[in-house]
């Protein structure tokens, strides 16, 4: 076997010193198949990468496209924000006041946060700072389980179980109200808030904890004086994202609020949410009608509000900059 019989990598042990400098390799400028494959893949994944941007713009454009006619014709900004009269199907004089819907959404989301914020943050602190090993893993799986229950099932629970519970306990005629939807929504928003809050706690470097513990602080003192202050922005973002989640929730509030237009006086009043209005009415409108476009206008409003909430959450997190 002479060296020339063997292809390139095989000659490493047989190569003679004098042959080495003269190896002919002409691949310096030849961009082979692999080079082009790499470029092609780079292009493909780049398109995938910017797809999120495309879709966000797409959503805004398509929702606006359907609603824009209404914005320029029937839309009355003052009426939209101040009038509680959402009467799109009135044959003589349809009105599009979203004030009651906005208040409905706000009251339910507000109550949900009162329920969910302390419990989620508490759970995050327990799971992140106190629980260890197996119990910690179990709790995390259970929180994931909580997130796995679909909103229509939550709505059904509000409609059936919670409804009769509220009627029985508080002796009110109807159990589908702010209280019902608020509790349901609170339980729905809790897992996402717990998960994000726990991530925020975990982002605090262990060296902080060790330093405080070295000074004789108890676990709780460490959490209260070191961990919570250091992670407060992340916790705030968790709360904001929970608010966004509650604000945008549809099926559960559609089923558990009672779905009647009302400016609530108490937590036992039925209300109607922005999202639920779209879900309930879109199927009954003629495509392109004023009502149809008014519903898309509600959609634009929802999109902008949640966009702002998410943007704020992102800015709050980015604002810390102490990674």
């Amino acid at each position: 076997m002479t060296p020339t019989d063997m292809s390139r990598p095989a000659d490493i042990s047989t190569r003679q010193p004098d042959s080495a400098p003269h190896r002919a390799r002409d691949d310096a400028d030849r961009r082979g198949f692999d080079w082009y494959v790499d470029k092609a893949v780079q292009l493909i994944v780049f398109v995938g990468g910017i797809s999120a941007i495309i879709f966000i713009f797409g959503i805004f454009i398509f929702v606006t496209r359907e609603g824009v006619g209404f914005l320029f014709e029937g839309f009355d900004l003052v009426e939209f924000f101040t009038s509680p009269r959402w009467m799109p199907t009135s044959s003589s004089n349809p009105t599009y006041g979203a004030a009651a819907l906005i208040l409905g959404t706000a009251s339910v989301t507000g109550l949900a946060m009162i329920v969910a914020v302390p419990f989620s943050l508490g759970a995050a602190v327990y799971i992140g700072e106190f629980a260890t090993g197996r119990s910690r893993e179990t709790l995390k799986v259970l929180v994931e389980l909580l997130a796995a229950i679909p909103s229509v099932v939550w709505g059904f629970i509000g409609l059936s179980i919670m409804n009769s519970l509220i009627v029985r306990i508080f002796d009110v005629p109807v159990g589908l109200n702010v209280l019902n939807a608020g509790i349901i929504l609170g339980l729905m928003a809790a897992p996402i808030m717990t998960t994000i809050a726990e991530d925020a706690l975990r982002a605090v470097p262990d060296t902080y904890r060790e330093a405080a513990e070295a000074m004789g602080a108890t676990r709780w003192q460490v959490v209260w004086r070191v961990v919570l202050p250091a992670s407060k922005n992340g916790l705030m973002a968790a709360v904001l994202l929970g608010v966004g989640r509650g604000f945008g929730e549809t099926m559960a509030v559609l089923m558990a609020t009672g779905h009647s237009i009302n400016i609530p006086d108490s937590i036992f009043d039925s209300v109607r949410a922005l999202t639920a209005t779209i879900a309930a009415e879109l199927g009954e409108t003629a495509v392109g009608s004023e009502h149809y476009r008014a519903l898309f206008t509600l959609g634009i409003f929802l999109f902008i509000i949640t966009f702002l909430i998410n943007l704020t959450a992102d800015l709050v997190v980015r604002g810390t900059g102490d990674r």
Binding site: R25, D27, A28, D29, R30, R31, G32, D34, W35
Partner: peptide, 16 residues
């Protein structure tokens, strides 16, 4: 004898 930056196929350079 050739500037590595002029290699159009940098992968071939790294292979060597």
């Amino acid at each position: 004898g050739r500037d590595v930056r002029e290699w159009r196929n940098a992968y071939a350079l790294r292979r060597r």
